[in-house]
């Protein structure tokens, strides 16, 4: 099977004025296959969100390449990017900051649909259905980002990412603000979309139990490098790297 995402030697060095260069993603290579849930765990500050931002082209790679469906998207811009976002969506680690504070959540969730010419009434129906799937009532469509709780905003961000039915969803700590009962509902939603639409996930997550439950493979990141990878059982039950061992031991 061809990978839907193929990441080769991806590297990011931040060069900020007056500061020394900082390589935070260091020759990272991995593949995501259609219908797969690939977990990414790792140290805080190890480069997980940076990898997500590189793949979604929010920042430019210093080195390496990103292939989506065999197509090189490492330097994609403009119209090509718009094309890419039809298939690739992301739920950001900080949901509140990812919504425009002056627009309602319903507006934000429906934006990608409107951009693709979905008529107003259809768009509204779809937004309400998405909210409902994420455990939020219709009323939330009219709320502003600062008028909802942390977990409600996170669910609105999931609804927004799912709106145009992408093929790949990058979840950056997408369930970390949810209580376990709501988390369960969201996990079930993600699994049902994996089955029904063959959606693939890059699932960045600190919760090892959740990774164990959800993912078919997992990458462990430390200091910008992949230090270990395998099935959750391989990685969690018999960790090889020092860092993974320390991680598994630290679970409360």
């Amino acid at each position: 099977m061809e990978p839907i995402l193929d990441i080769k030697d991806l590297t990011k060095t931040f060069r900020n004025r007056g500061k020394s260069d900082l390589t935070v993603v260091d020759h990272v290579s991995f593949q995501l296959y259609p219908g797969e849930i690939l977990g990414v765990v790792g140290e805080s500050g190890s480069g997980k969100s940076t990898i997500a931002k590189l793949i979604t082209r929010l920042i430019d790679a210093t080195e390496g390449s990103i292939f989506m469906n065999g197509r090189d998207i490492t330097h994609a811009k403009g119209a090509q990017l718009k094309d890419i976002y039809q298939q690739l969506q992301m739920v950001f680690q900080n949901p509140v900051g990812s919504f425009d504070p002056r627009r309602t959540l319903g507006d934000g969730i429906g934006e990608s649909l409107r951009n693709h010419g979905v008529p107003k009434e259809k768009c509204r129906e779809r937004v309400i259905r998405l909210l409902e799937q994420c455990g939020l009532s219709e009323e939330f469509a009219g709320r502003y980002p600062h008028e909802v709780s942390g977990g409600q905003c996170q669910r609105a961000a999931i609804a927004r990412a799912l709106a145009i039915e992408p093929k790949i969803l990058i979840c950056d700590e997408a369930t970390s603000a949810l209580d376990v009962t709501v988390q369960k509902q969201i996990v079930e939603l993600l699994l049902s979309l994996q089955k029904a639409n063959g959606l693939s996930y890059l699932f960045i997550c600190h919760n090892l139990a959740l990774v164990q439950m959800l993912c078919s493979r997992v990458l462990v990141l430390y200091d910008g490098k992949i230090v270990e990878s395998g099935t959750p059982d391989e990685v969690i039950l018999s960790p090889k790297s020092e860092y993974t061992k320390c991680l598994v031991d630290a679970v409360l």
Binding site: V41, S44, E173, S176, A177, L208, C246, A250, V251, L252
Partner: peptide
Amino acid sequence: EPTSALDVAVQKQVV
């Protein structure tokens, strides 16, 4: 939610 964005090793230390 002081530890929601932290890996479990750091989380343990914060606790």
